[in-house]
Design a protein around this nucleic acid. Structure first.
Length: 135
DNA sequence: GCCAACGTTGGC
DNA sequence: GCCAACGTTGGC
């Protein structure tokens, strides 16, 4: 079981929208490093849901319900999508600046590789985020 | 809205 | 295959 983090701009697809839809196809990833991560996702893996641009914080937990398949939004079998569903909203969203200030997160992809849209989250990072979120 | 950081493209 | 130029992302 692995942990991940996906980013979305709320104006494009927010956490609330995911809750409303129950689940969604995570399509449109066009970045090599992000694709490696998408392909490594397994059914049941848990995913932090992060809002970029607005909020700039981790807002909820999602879960992988369908492993990588060809992205239906492009006619090119090199790109993949996964399906995720909403699990729960965090009691306390975890803002990026808290993570940046906390040395324990200095090596977290979210802090180091700001632009990567699908990231890995280590077990200890997951636990620390959960603690900060009051979960 | 600006701009730094990073990925991608394309000329050589 | 290198690297400059360009485009995009995303924090501020």
């Amino acid at each position: 079981m692995s942990y991940w983090l996906v980013k979305s701009e709320p104006s494009a697809y927010s956490w609330d929208q995911l809750v409303k839809d129950k689940q969604t196809a995570w399509t449109g990833v066009r970045n090599y490093a992000a694709r490696i991560n998408l392909r490594a996702m397994k059914k049941g893996d848990e995913v932090l849901y992060y809002h970029s641009n607005e909020g700039v914080e981790i807002v909820g937990i999602a879960k992988v319900i369908k492993e990588a398949y060809q992205d239906p939004t492009i006619d090119d079998d090199r790109w993949v999508a996964v399906d995720i569903k909403a699990v729960k909203k965090l009691k306390n969203p975890v803002p990026l600046d808290i993570l940046k200030k906390d040395k324990r997160f200095a090596n977290m992809d979210l802090v180091r590789l700001g632009r990567l849209s699908v990231q890995t989250v280590k077990d200890d990072e997951w636990k620390m985020v959960m603690a900060l979120a009051g979960e």
